[in-house]
Design a protein around this nucleic acid. Structure first.
Lengths: 400, 400
DNA sequence: AAAACTTTGTTTATCCACTAGACTAACAAG
DNA sequence: CTTGTTAGTCTAGTGGATAAACAAAGTTTT
């Protein structure tokens, strides 16, 4: 829970905070008794009892049968009700659309994917509506039903949820949030794909225990999502993490962004493919792809393997910069390039081991995404869930 | 005020929060009446009255004569008592020691500076004690006296205040915090010099209104202090901001850190001096210095001017990376290189204007330090003040 | 100048959520 | 059955916020 600068403090705030505390405890450690919640949070037994009753009424938790006695009365075990509601998470890519239906614990209940090329906004919008409606139909009955929709997009999203620019989709100043909110009358969250991926990994993936995570979304371009002090950092206007355009070679080649020697000219999927094409590794195929190159490497093509190694090395250069900047607990490499883990990992970790400052290397993990292709969709789903739960914690408005 | 994960919420928290709210309001907007505090914070008039009485008892505020009537009873104006206590801020540099005595509003009451070269730890410690004691003696009488000591050091400080490594001082694993706390029986804060500088600028300098500030401390090396979402970001172990060792030229020259093409090899004071020496600009002087080079530029020496311009350009390259990474409201260049603003600014801002992403440039300010040489000392003083005030907000412990 | 109105600041009664501790319930061990 | 232990509820008390009444000290209107 966040307390803004000018928020006043009163008993509502206290109750909201403690209710969250109790719910989080149950969510993380269930099955758990009221007594254990009380002793572990430091709250009074009576307080816990009363808050638990509220949560039971909201169907956010439920009681199971009695647990094991530890020498006295047997405790009533409390469980988080993961299926009290469902949320829809959409990963809207440049040439694919991946939708999931997830319960409140991030379990994927239903999944739907479409691939396309160079479709118009209208066509993509239609596909989006179709996906959302199919997923909604797939949701089991539950006390709260669908609690929200989240969409991750490969572009820049401002704080109001407007998509300011998605260069690879050719979108500009598009308020998808309003469109969806009006159509479905549900809370909608639009977020940059890398930010969402970072949050997904924090909530449900490799970074569960970490407060400072840097998620490197390496695909056609490179974007970075920043989890700092446990929450997403978005910058003054929501444009943080454009590290694909970080200079790593002052006199390097020109980038379409106007700068020279940008990281993504060296380490992105596009860069890898460009280099492969220059070498003429796979000349017979016009529509050359990362997966083709992967196959070549798996077949033992030395040129392909060397290309991957070089790319891993370049990834390491940027990750080094990330480490020196943020001193994170964890760096997670996600998006399409994560699929090439096997061929990238060695040269990447070597680069970091040899060139990062020694004291930065303690307790530092460099991982590839655990959620693989679902990071972004699960991330926006997580935003929806958080939002829903935080609304649940607020005191009910009395009907007039 | 921060609420940790497992902090329970109760009456004390509420009161503490509201007391802070009232004090902050008065501190920022004094002179102000109780009625105005109430309406502007949203608190009830009675609540404000009672909290104001607490603050009056603590001598943190005081009443002045009546203000102007606005058609009714004349208000009693409240003022923040900036001289309720004093704090000591020390900027412990590689070859200088700057100490200030500051009141609770960051006004420098007394100042003391020493310069030295290659002194032992013992000698520096003696100098430090001497400085602290002289500043203490210079403090006027006040209700709370000296409320704390802060020290900024050019090195890496962990979360417990231990100096893990200060390469330019040749210090390692030094717990200066304990030394000072035991000697003076006062709360002591040790902080990295760039972090402190960033905080100083946020509290008392160019960044007062900003939530996201990046402070570039450009001296012999380059360190960066990060103010994100209004508070200092220190990373998992307190090692964030080592951006001087960010790679900006993959195949660049070797750095003593083990990496190649580090930013500070291009844009630091050391880099500037090295280039000047190579050019033989000032051969007759063995002990060549930034200030000498500045004089040359002021005399119109074209080579010197060009050197500065080139350095400004290199600074711009790294600042570009900073902007793409953080999307800050403000970048502040501090430490010794800030003194060369006149000769660096043009090429620096040109580099940024030409090569940063266009949408990053809205509402972006690039400034040179307002506090000039005092940023760090004022920053650690600010930490001390914050700490003192937050203790004041806590409920008094009852004597047993 | 008296009356009416405004604004400031204090006081009082009430409310709300937490705490401590008594109490009830349910179980284990002797 | 008795005693001891743990789980969970209930009751009284407390602290701090709020709303509203009230007192104080002005200004404006008549």
């Amino acid at each position: 829970m966040k307390i803004g600068m000018n928020q006043t403090w009163n008993h509502h705030v206290v109750k909201e905070g403690n209710k969250s505390l109790v719910l989080d405890k149950i969510k993380n450690d269930y099955p758990i008794s009221r007594a254990a919640v009380a002793s572990q949070t430091g709250l009074n037994k009576g307080t816990v009892s009363s808050l638990v009753n509220d949560l039971l009424e909201d169907h956010l938790i439920f009681e199971s049968g009695p647990g094991e006695s530890s020498g006295g009365r047997r405790p009533v075990m409390l469980l988080f009700n993961g299926t009290a509601g469902y949320t829809i998470g959409i990963d809207l890519g440049v040439n694919y659309l991946l939708g999931i239906l997830s319960d409140l614990e991030g379990n994927v209940v239903s999944q739907k994917e479409a691939r396309y090329k160079k479709m118009s906004y209208e066509a993509i919008e239609a596909k989006l509506f179709e996906t959302i409606e199919e997923l909604m139909a797939a949701a089991p009955d539950s006390p709260h039903g669908i609690v929200g929709i989240g969409v991750g997009v490969p572009g820049i999203v401002d704080k109001g949820g407007e998509i300011l620019l998605a260069p690879n989709l050719n979108w500009k100043n598009l308020n998808l949030k309003n469109v969806l909110e009006e159509k479905y009358d549900l809370p909608v969250i639009i977020e940059n794909e890398a930010n969402a991926g970072a949050y997904g990994e924090k909530k449900f993936g490799a970074g569960k225990e970490c407060e400072n995570i840097i998620y490197v979304s390496a695909g056609i371009g490179i974007g970075v999502g920043l989890i700092l002090n446990g929450s997403l950092y978005k910058g003054a206007n929501g444009f943080s993490g454009e590290m694909g355009h970080m200079t790593i070679q002052i006199d390097g080649p020109k980038c379409r962004c106007g700068n020279q020697g940008c990281w993504e000219l060296f380490a992105s999927e596009q860069a890898l493919i460009d280099r492969a094409e220059k070498l003429g590794i796979c000349p017979e195929q016009a529509d050359f792809d990362l997966s083709d190159l992967l196959k070549l490497a798996e077949q033992g093509n030395e040129q392909a393997i060397e290309l991957f190694e070089q790319t891993g090395d370049y990834l390491g250069v940027g990750i080094n910069n990330i480490i020196n900047t943020f001193n994170p607990q964890q760096v997670i490499i996600g998006n399409r390039m994560a699929s090439s883990k096997e061929w990238l990992e060695n040269s990447l970790t070597n680069r970091v081991a040899n060139q990062a400052l020694w004291f930065q290397q303690n307790d530092l993990q460099i991982n590839f995404s655990e959620l693989s292709t679902l990071s972004t969709a699960l991330g926006v789903a997580a935003f929806s869930i958080e939002n829903f739960l935080s609304v649940c914690m607020q005191p009910k408005l009395v009907m007039r």
